[in-house]
């Protein structure tokens, strides 16, 4: 499998990269980890005429807590997320998710920003970002702008990143209090795209009530989605089994899966229900052990 020919640039500053994007127009693509793009190019599903490799631009890879936010540079590799102490201690959802993304070699190169900017509802991080209430920082030649995750995904392989822009940072409200998060996807074999996946985050107040909640779903809608009705049911509740069951039921009703080799619509809704329940319970038990 061999890609069509293209031109390649590896600028060393963001400004240069953005200038090149403007110069080359629509046929240019950014090469981040390349582990989604290069396979598509090999199969000739994608044939950009220019590739702009942003791996040589310093300062796009970091994980830090600052201004009440967990900030992750867009070029941070999955493996760096997996191994980060901050994340291991407080944001368990990333450990759950990264372990299930492709395989270790792919995670050595695949980036968090790339996973989001690819705009694929089958990817795992979009659901995680919904659960955590993330925003995404996008840089263009007008400077930076921040887009809430709810406004980020526009369609199949389409996101808020416009031509001439680069996704540069992911911003997540920092964990505080009794905060727990979890992710799981059903997959046909390790490294597969999700048959259905659920990301959940909860924060529990001193009175045992849910003070914050987020639920994102993987690969059960044409674009990554938030399970809003489930969240509403949980927020302010006592997180009883009945409420969790109700939330899981809502998620299974509100998603919109399509039949494929992984399963039919009914099976996927069933999985969403089962996994939502499990991930909420896991997030709750983690929340209780935190803080």
């Amino acid at each position: 499998m061999i890609a069509e020919n293209f031109n390649y640039d590896a600028p060393s500053t963001l400004e240069e990269a953005i200038a090149l994007l403007h110069q080359y127009g629509d046929d240019a693509k950014i090469l981040a980890g390349g582990h989604s793009l290069v396979p598509m190019m090999k199969l000739r599903f994608a044939s950009p005429t220019h590739l702009i490799d942003i791996n040589n631009i310093p300062g796009l890879s970091y994980i830090k807590e600052e201004d009440g936010l967990l900030k992750i540079g867009a070029m941070t590799k999955e493996v760096e997320v997996e191994e980060s102490e901050i994340i291991k201690n407080k944001y368990h959802i990333f450990g759950d998710a990264t372990k299930l993304i492709a395989d270790p070699q792919v995670r050595n190169f695949g980036t968090l920003g790339g996973n989001l900017a690819h705009g694929d509802a089958a990817n795992d991080h979009p659901a995680v970002m919904f659960a955590l209430g993330a925003s995404v920082e996008i840089t263009g030649n007008q400077g930076k702008r921040t887009v809430p995750i709810d406004e980020f995904f526009h369609g199949f392989y389409m996101t808020a990143v416009q031509h001439g822009e680069v996704l540069t940072e992911i911003q997540i409200p920092a964990a505080s209090g009794n905060y727990g998060s979890a992710y799981h996807k059903a997959e046909r074999k390790v490294g597969d795209y999700a048959t259905a996946g659920v990301a959940a985050m909860v924060q529990i107040g001193a009175d045992g009530r849910c003070t914050k909640v987020g639920i994102g779903l993987t690969n059960v809608n044409s674009v990554p989605m938030r399970a809003s009705r489930s969240e509403e049911a949980l927020l302010g509740s006592d997180l009883s089994e009945a409420v969790i069951n109700q939330a899981a039921q809502y998620a299974s009703e509100d998603c919109n899966p399509s039949a494929d080799l992984r399963g039919d619509e009914d099976y996927k809704r069933h999985l969403v229900k089962v996994i939502t329940k499990r991930m909420l319970n896991l997030a709750i038990s983690r929340a209780k052990n935190q803080g």
Binding site: R262, G263, D264, D266, Y267, H270
Partner: peptide
């Protein structure tokens, strides 16, 4: 025998009740 296939077989036997 995939989980999907097994699910369908069990569902056909009413194992998951009506609201699966």
């Amino acid at each position: 025998v995939t989980p999907f296939k097994l699910y369908k077989a069990l569902k056909a036997k009413g194992y998951f009740g009506d609201n699966a």
